[in-house]
């Protein structure tokens, strides 16, 4: 193993370590401002009542759930083409964050859906797509965990991520087709409120979205650093055993 293998990760750690407190600090500050603003200082929607406040968690989480997968896709492609270890490890680091974001989106959606739609769960296209996305995340993480050799694991998960992305997009359209087919246009209206919402709700929502984005970046940096160290540790231990 040459020293060059660590040159890049070392630089990554050196660059990211001082950045992490800033990113995380900003993320937490943004979350506090956005959520407090949203929770305490926005009026209730005339139709949804106070449940409209859930939007400040639901929409940013859903946004990051999709973006996390997209980031993993890009990182996987970079790994396959350029063979930068940091890239593969960043994809691995992002997956659990994506799972939690998907879970938050599903959970808050269910809690919102109970009083608004009268049901915790409906097989609505968007809901179903998110459930499928959740399954993709689980499979991706399971494959990482199952393979011992880090390079093999990185290669195989990257291939899975690329194929999975194609099928995730395909599933999204298939699900939309399927539900329309069953319900003939009477499916549950996805009144997210996001489109028609006016500035009172919009400003804290944007703050929350930015804060979730920063939180994601900060967590990816932390977790990638961890993965790099874990990998180096394994390499060192393997060398010492020899």
């Amino acid at each position: 193993m040459s020293i060059w293998e660590y040159a890049n990760p070392k630089k990554f750690i050196a660059t990211s370590t001082p950045l992490v407190p800033w990113v995380m600090g900003l993320a937490v500050a943004g979350l506090v401002v956005g959520l407090v603003w949203g929770f305490f200082f926005t009026p209730d929607d005339y139709r949804q009542g106070s449940t409209v406040k859930i939007i400040y968690l639901h929409v940013p989480a859903a946004l990051m759930a999709i973006n996390a997968w997209f980031m993993m896709l890009v990182a996987s492609l970079i790994w396959l083409v350029r063979r930068h270890h940091v890239s593969a490890l960043a994809a691995r680091a992002a997956a659990p964050i994506g799972v939690v974001m998907t879970l938050i989106a599903l959970l808050t959606g269910a809690i919102w859906g109970q009083p608004m739609w009268g049901t915790w769960w409906a097989w609505d296209p968007r809901l179903t797509s998110f459930l499928i996305l959740f399954l993709f995340y689980l499979g991706y993480i399971a494959l990482w965990e199952a393979i011992d050799d880090p390079d093999t694991a990185a290669d195989l998960t990257s291939v899975l991520c690329i194929v999975g992305s194609v099928f995730a997009v395909l599933s999204r359209y298939a699900v939309r087709f399927w539900n329309q087919g069953l319900h003939q246009g009477t499916s549950v209206p996805v009144a997210t409120g996001g489109r028609t919402v006016d500035d009172v709700f919009f400003v804290p929502l944007v703050i929350c979205m930015v804060a979730f984005g920063l939180l994601f970046v900060g967590l990816v940096l932390i977790r990638t650093t961890t993965e790099i160290r874990a990998r180096r540790m394994r390499a060192l231990e393997a060398r010492m055993r020899r």
Binding site: L35, F39, S50, T51, K53, I54, L57, H58, I104, L107, T108, I111, W112, Q114, P115
Partner: peptide
């Protein structure tokens, strides 16, 4: 609902 969503 709102409180449990935030809490969770």
């Amino acid at each position: 609902e709102v409180l449990s969503a935030y809490a969770a």
